[in-house]
Design a protein around this nucleic acid. Structure first.
Length: 216
DNA sequence: CTTTGGATCGTCT
DNA sequence: GACGATCCAAAGG
């Protein structure tokens, strides 16, 4: 491992911050997703703590954009892990995923909510609606708007030290028992409890799951 | 508080 | 030609 990785630092955040290594993302989305809770999403000077994610399991998952094989939109998901898959939602919003799984296996973890930590004024300026901090990025479209992620970021490497967008850990461990429900806004494979959240966090998305709710 | 409908367009059928 | 891995404002109880 590159020693520089463990001494990487996010300016305004207190404490040691290291980049997430690609090997940590090589597993199935369902397994990796809960481990990304409490990690940091860094976009320039904006930092948010990931508090809600969803897993999409590629070829095995009718709800995944990759279910029917590679297309011009979903190509990044079929590449190596650690890259960002960004797509346009409802013609209006952007949504961002962390690609996991090895090349050819189109696993992806949708980033659904972050707790704003730094660069909050920039997030606020990027959002049309002025709300409490917790509402700045508590939904996949809001997250991209607040953090400044758009279609031009599709495919960027989240594990690259010099990248504008990166995934980091600051020593806060993922929750031992993450909350989970079915996924939000999908019409197929509604029953899979693949939405994961930091328990009792005020900043998770307000959206209601598509299927019957399971654990909380 | 909850429910509903409009915006808006790339992607895939 | 239809449909979203959404968000928000407005209307209804």
């Amino acid at each position: 491992m590159d020693p520089a990785d463990v001494t990487d630092r996010v300016d305004v955040t207190v404490g040691a911050v290291r980049a997430v290594r690609r090997a940590e993302l090589s597993g199935a989305a369902v397994d990796v997703a809960p481990t990304l809770l409490n990690s940091l999403l860094v976009v320039g000077d904006r930092v948010g703590r990931i508090i809600e994610v969803e897993a999409y399991a590629g070829a095995e998952d009718p709800a995944s954009h990759a279910f029917r094989g590679p297309t011009s939109r979903n190509g990044v998901m079929f590449g190596p892990p650690g890259h960002l898959y960004v797509y346009r939602s409802y013609g209006i919003h952007w949504c961002a995923n962390v690609v996991t799984g090895n090349a050819g296996d189109a696993q992806a973890v949708l980033l659904r909510a972050v707790e704003p930590l730094t660069g909050i004024e920039h997030m606020r300026a990027a959002r049309a609606v002025l709300d409490r901090d917790a509402d700045l990025a508590n939904g996949p479209g809001k997250l991209c708007q607040a953090m400044g992620i758009s279609g031009t970021d599709d495919g960027v490497d989240l594990c690259h030290r010099a990248g504008r967008i990166r995934l980091c850990r600051d020593g806060v461990a993922p929750p031992e028992h993450p909350a989970s429900t079915t996924r939000v806004g999908i019409s197929r494979a509604r029953d899979r409890p693949w939405r994961f959240m930091v328990p009792d966090h005020a900043g998770v998305s307000r959206a209601r799951p598509s299927g019957a709710e399971r654990s909380t």
